[in-house]
Amino acid sequence: MFVVLDGTYTLARADMSTHTKIPFYLPEGVKKLHIDVAYSPKYNYNEEYGLALIEKSMMKQAGEPLMTKGEMRACLPLDNHLSYSIDSPKGAIGTAHRGNDRQSFLISEDFADGGFYPCETVAGEWTFVISATCIITDTVTVSLRIEAEE
């Protein structure tokens, strides 16, 4: 087992609704990929900010109240949401879309989990894509570690 990639990446509010592509290279002979990805912070605990943002967004989207103050408060704390995709040299191999701030994936020819498809771990340039579905903190720091098993 050897480390293919071990990095941290910082996204800002302005990166919301964008895809950040992180290339990595796999040599010949790799049989499995182990991927650990985490981001922080998950939550924005500023209640005043959260309520104001919900109310403003609600009026912009619906033009009328969709929920009471109490219902809005029940939605707090607001949280960041990132999705991950992987492209092999042969094309896209799926997306992991869930709210967890820590996720691990295994990818091989026979097995894959988390929303990815089993595929050959062929040599060449791969891409890990971070899709910023929601960022409600000033910054989000993503740590990504990819290990290869021969």
């Binding site: 919301m16 959260g50 943002l53 919900i54 967004s57 609600m58 989207q61 619906a62 969709l66 929920m67 939605c75 607001l78 949401h81 579905t133 929601c134 409600i136």
Partner: peptide, 15 residues
């Protein structure tokens, strides 16, 4: 299409 989107369910509202 009219479900509340950002910041509760970003992308859920059809923009």
């Amino acid at each position: 299409p009219k479900r509340m989107g950002f910041p509760l369910c970003s992308g859920c509202h059809c923009d």
